[in-house]
């Protein structure tokens, strides 16, 4: 299958007068047509920075991309100018932001906000009435009665607002959708409604998706492949099955799973990861997880680990390299 998106060794730094923040440190992944990739990690892992880099929405003042390439349908997006990017953004790649309360314009009806996206990318030369028809169609698709298109965002509940945001993102039928924590702000029953709807639309439209989340539960319901991100690096990458039930795992992935209270098993104590994420303003010599890792060895602090691969499953850790040698 053809790669729709290929990110190669991407690095993103934020530079200010005082310090440099190493937000993304050499991330590589691919997305094929129709695939959903989950980017999982905690606050500050660099998930959102990666998506902003793909869309070239990083702050021009502070963000630098010292290394890396982002190929979308064979073109390196980093070589494109702002004019060319505008043709891709919202049309071929679009984004759903985390907080539907702030992503919508409060003084514009939702119908106008959806029509705006269609108007700005109107290559087919649709007439105004055709655009209105399309707005109705998109609203029906996300389960909002088209009569409500003359209402303002504050007249909708949180779940409905997120549906509007999804409708705007899907209006131009993009090939790639980046969803940044699309259900984090929603209640669990509403989250289930929205996740099911996104799954259905994806199948219907054949859209590829990057789902950014901190919730392994959400990933397990929606994604085909998973990349676990820690301190700006992918520490584990593979199919859903690889990451959830593969033979070997990165100690950070193990810690993430150990931190979630189980609904089925009876556990008196959780097994959290001790300590905190490393300071992103410091350059690290060895493995970035070393300070919190229960299996840390001397080599971990000296050398950055290379990738241990087993079929589609990749783990960036010294632990398995060693085992391989012993075997």
């Amino acid at each position: 299958m053809e790669n729709l998106l290929e990110v190669k060794n991407l690095q993103v730094h934020y530079e200010t007068d005082k310090e440099t923040v190493y937000a993304v440190n050499g991330v590589s992944f691919t997305i094929q047509n129709g695939e959903t990739l989950g980017l999982v990690g905690e606050t500050g892992a660099g998930k959102t920075t990666i998506s902003l880099a793909i869309l070239q929405l990083l702050s021009e003042r502070t963000a630098r991309i010292p290394k890396g390439e982002i190929y979308f349908k064979g073109k390196n997006l980093l070589d494109l100018g702002e004019k060319e990017m505008q043709l891709i953004r919202g049309e071929e790649i679009s984004m759903i932001f985390q907080d539907p309360m702030t992503a919508l314009n409060p003084i514009m009806t939702i119908g106008k906000q959806i029509a705006e996206a269609l108007r700005l990318h109107n290559h087919q030369g649709l007439s105004l009435s055709e655009i209105e028809e399309k707005v109705d169609e998109v609203l029906k698709m996300v389960g909002i009665p088209p009569e409500r298109k003359t209402e303002y965002p504050h007249q909708f509940s949180g779940g409905m607002k997120q549906r509007v945001v999804i409708a705007i993102a899907l209006a131009c039928e993009p090939q790639l959708l980046i969803a940044d924590e699309p259900t984090t702000a929603l209640d669990v029953t509403i989250q289930a409604q929205v996740l099911l709807m996104m799954k259905r639309l994806r199948q219907q439209l054949g859209t590829s998706m990057i789902l950014i989340t901190h919730d392994l539960g959400v990933v397990s319901k929606v994604c085909d492949n998973v990349a676990v991100i820690y301190a700006g690096e992918i520490v584990e990458y593979g199919t859903l099955r690889d990451v959830f039930s593969g033979k070997v795992h990165h100690p950070y992935t193990v810690g993430l799973f150990g931190s979630i209270p189980s609904l089925t098993a009876k556990t008196r104590r959780l097994q959290p990861i001790e300590g905190l994420m490393p300071d992103p303003t410091k350059e690290v010599q060895g493995c970035r997880f070393a300070d919190r890792c229960p299996h840390v060895r001397e080599i971990c602090r000296r050398e950055s680990p290379s990738i241990f691969a087993e079929g589609s499953h990749q783990v960036k850790c010294h632990l398995f390299r060693e085992e391989e040698k012993h075997a």
Partner: peptide, 14 residues
């Protein structure tokens, strides 16, 4: 309870 996305891949994914 049914709406909780449990981190489990063998329940048919909702």
């Amino acid at each position: 309870i049914a709406a909780i996305p449990t981190p489990d891949i063998d329940d048919g994914g909702f």
